[in-house]
């Protein structure tokens, strides 16, 4: 799976939890789930669970700890899919 496809998937997953919709216009690896999209901190758990379901991976707490930006989430997904 290439970078663009992963980013598109993340965008699709995070959209329903996004409270600041204009943050989606400029969606890129630097996009911060909490600061830019105003995802409620409890909904970040839902984003992580949806990512697990979508890619059929398991995200441990240590990986989850850094999942605050789109780029970070992408890196973790790639790592878990066995692509480094």
């Amino acid at each position: 799976m290439n970078d663009t496809k992963i980013l598109d998937s993340i965008k699709k997953i995070v959209t329903p939890y996004t409270q600041r919709k204009e943050g989606l216009d400029n969606f890129n690896e630097d996009t911060d789930f909490i600061k830019d999209l105003e995802v409620n901190s409890a909904n970040l758990v839902d984003v992580i669970l949806d990512v697990e379901d979508e890619f059929n991976i398991e995200i441990d707490n240590e990986s989850m700890s850094g999942m605050l930006t789109v780029g970070n989430a992408k890196n973790i997904i790639e790592q878990k899919l066995g692509k480094t």
Binding site: N40, A42, N43, V45, D46, I48, L49, E52, N61, M64
Partner: peptide, 17 residues
């Protein structure tokens, strides 16, 4: 708001938190 925003009974939610 949490009633609408979060579904804590979904699988995996409690285990992550």
């Amino acid at each position: 708001l949490t009633k609408f925003q979060s579904n804590w009974s979904r699988r995996g939610f409690l285990q992550k938190v």
